[in-house]
Amino acid sequence: ALTKEFCETTLRSDNRSAAANDTRELALVAMDLASTAAASASAKARSALRSSGGRGSKDRDTEYSLRYCLMDYGTVAVVLPACRAVVEEYSPRDFQAPFDYLECAGRVMDAAGDCWQRVSYEDGALKRALWNDAVDVANRANLGQALVEQMVDFP
């Protein structure tokens, strides 16, 4: 669950938050931050997979989790820009159904959550290697979703 502190620290890490006029603009900032985190997590996972030696390595759990998280980060990388465009178009005057805007944030969250959930089952070295990144991506996706919900005034 989001903390107020995480929300503020994350949003304020990007200067655009200070100039934001509404929650739509804050949601866009959060989505960009989620995108950055996913790209960085993906690069790290790819590099870890390469150094694990790929198929046939001793730590198969690590290897599979890396591979699944890479799929999820890839999904985030594809869905986020498309979702950003949807959120960017939002206007309350369009009287569009809230779900038309909420769905994409949910899809980003689903992908981020899948990696988070898979890694949460692991322990030891694997968890140490992947956990912080997985948590970071999931928290930022969650923040983006929370702000899109505020944008459309979804209770």
Binding site: L2, L11, S17, Q150
Partner: peptide, 15 residues
């Protein structure tokens, strides 16, 4: 400010 207000509302949000 907007960030503080939005974060107060976002607090506790779970996916």
């Amino acid at each position: 400010d907007l960030v503080a207000t939005a974060c107060e509302k976002a607090k506790g949000h779970e996916a």
